[in-house]
């Protein structure tokens, strides 16, 4: 039984339609901390013009954004802020880790720098480089759009895969004594108060 369609009607899967809408209206939240932030600015500025790829609506409020671009190194004092902002963003949301420092700690293998933000928040796309060129960031955004179109579902099922991932972390206890004063660290306190599986940041 064939149904005849009018000329201006197209048939698609709902999932694909939703993904198509999402991928073409990415609103980035620039979490720019260091040098990569300047290249992020260059990507948005005159010569490279991110607007050509439909992701130029930079919004600084996490509530309005669905793509977090972490540009630059994230240090101990900044990580709770990063996690809080990530939790404030609405689903569906994605994260680009821009540059070597955000991805792995880069040249800063020191006491203060978090060795890759993917230890503590989910990351969808890594951009190598120190800092990456604007073209690389644009390519990452195009790839992410591709990924959204390929895997996206209207219910966000594709994000469920991460449930299979184990939580890697523990409070690393190198010398036998916890080196951070746990009583004064709100993050650790919260962790201790709630069982691991239901820990939440505010």
């Amino acid at each position: 039984m064939a149904i005849e369609l009018p000329e201006n009607v197209m048939v698609s899967r709902l999932d694909e339609l939703a993904s198509w809408c999402r991928k073409n209206s990415l609103w980035p939240m620039p979490f720019a901390t260091a040098c990569c932030g300047i290249e992020l600015m260059a990507t948005g500025a005159a010569k490279h013009d991110l607007a050509r790829f439909g992701a130029e609506v930079f919004r600084f409020s996490p509530r309005q954004c669905d793509l977090m671009i972490v540009a630059g190194r994230v240090v101990m004092k900044m990580l709770p802020v990063l996690q809080r902002i990530w939790l404030q963003m609405h689903e569906p949301k994605w994260c680009i880790s821009m540059g070597a420092c955000a991805s792995t700690g880069g040249v800063f293998d020191t006491y203060a720098v978090v060795q890759g933000i993917d230890r503590f928040i989910p990351v969808d796309m890594y951009v190598p480089g120190c800092p990456p060129r604007p073209e690389q960031l644009i390519q990452a955004i195009i790839d992410l759009q591709d990924k959204i179109q390929r895997e996206g579902t209207i219910t966000g099922r594709e994000f469920d895969t991460s449930q299979r991932q184990l939580r890697k972390r523990a409070l690393v206890d190198v010398t036998g004594v916890l080196q951070v004063d746990a009583a004064r660290n709100p993050v650790i306190q919260r962790e201790l108060r709630f069982p691991r599986s239901e820990s939440r940041l505010p």
Binding site: M76, L79, P80, Q83, W86, L87, M89, E91, K93, D109, T110, Y111, A112, V113, V114, Q115, R119, F120, I121, P122, F159, D160, S162, Q163, Q165, R167, K168, R169, L171, V172, D173, V174, T175, L178, Q179, V180, N185, V187, I188, R190, E191, S199, R200, L201
Partner: peptide, 21 residues
Amino acid sequence: DYPLQGRGERHNFPVLTREDG
């Protein structure tokens, strides 16, 4: 007498996964 890589302080944070969002 403090090492360059620290004493593990930089790992003392909770991990967020997709389900936390």
